[in-house]
Design a protein around this nucleic acid. Sequence first.
DNA 1: TCAATAGTTCGAGTGTATTCGAACTATTGA
DNA 2: TCAATAGTTCGAATACACTCGAACTATTGA
Lengths: 107, 107
Amino acid sequence: MRTLYHPETEQIELQHVFYALSEPIRFTIVLQLMDASELSCGGFELALPKSTLSHHFKVLRESGVIRTRLEGTQRFISLRTMDLESRFPGLLKVIRESAAGNVAHEA
Amino acid sequence: MRTLYHPETEQIELQHVFYALSEPIRFTIVLQLMDASELSCGGFELALPKSTLSHHFKVLRESGVIRTRLEGTQRFISLRTMDLESRFPGLLKVIRESAAGNVAHEA
DNA sequence: TCAATAGTTCGAGTGTATTCGAACTATTGA
DNA sequence: TCAATAGTTCGAATACACTCGAACTATTGA
C-alpha cells in the first residue's frame, strides 16, 4: 500500500459516485466528512471493525469521493469537495440539504 | 399487478435514488426519459429481454425515480421530474449536465 | 370467446458486495 | 532494535443483485 489510487477529477464518474453513496455506512462517512474537513480512519463515529471501514474507505476513494493522505502511521481522509464540485456542480449541495432535511426541518 | 407501488414524494430517499441510478441500464433509462417525457416499456432503445427491463423498471419505480401509468395493455413510464426536483432540488440538473458532458463538450 | 399484445413473476444460474477475524505491513518513538 | 499504533489485505461466509427463459396475468379487439 505505497500508492493509493485516486482517480483524476475528470475521471470521476457519476454512476460510481452514486454507487459509493448508495451504501448507508459510506453515506454516513461522507456526511461526517462534510462537518469535519479531515478525519483519521479511527476518527469517525462508527462502531465497526477496522477491516470493514477500510473496505468502505477504499470504495469511496476509488470512486473519487474522498482523498486519503498518508501521515505517519495514520491516514487522513477528506472529502474531495473542490473536485466533486467542479465535476458535478451542485451535487454536494443536494447531499447536504438532503441530510439536513432528514434530521430536522430548518427554515 | 393491480396496484403498482410508488413511494410518496416525501418518502423518496436519496440513497435509494443513488442506488437505482448506479446501475448502467437504469441510468440509461433515466436519460432516455429526460428526452422523452413518457415512454412505454417497449419504447426504450434497449435491446434486452422484457423480464430484464421489467426488473429495472421496478427498481426505479420503487425508489421513486419513475412513475408507471397503466393504460390498456401498456404501461407508460415517466420520470418523476417534479417530485424529484421538489425533494432534491438540483439533482436532475446534475444528472443532465453529467450526461451532456460525457457525450460532447458543449459551450 | 379467443387470439394477440404488453408486461410481470418465478426460478435458477451466476456474479458481485458486505462483513469480520486473523494475519500482515508500515511508521513512530523509546 | 523493538513494542505499540494505524490501517490494509486475505479468506471465507453470507447475502444481495443481475440476467433471462418460461410460465403467467391482464387487456384489447375481432
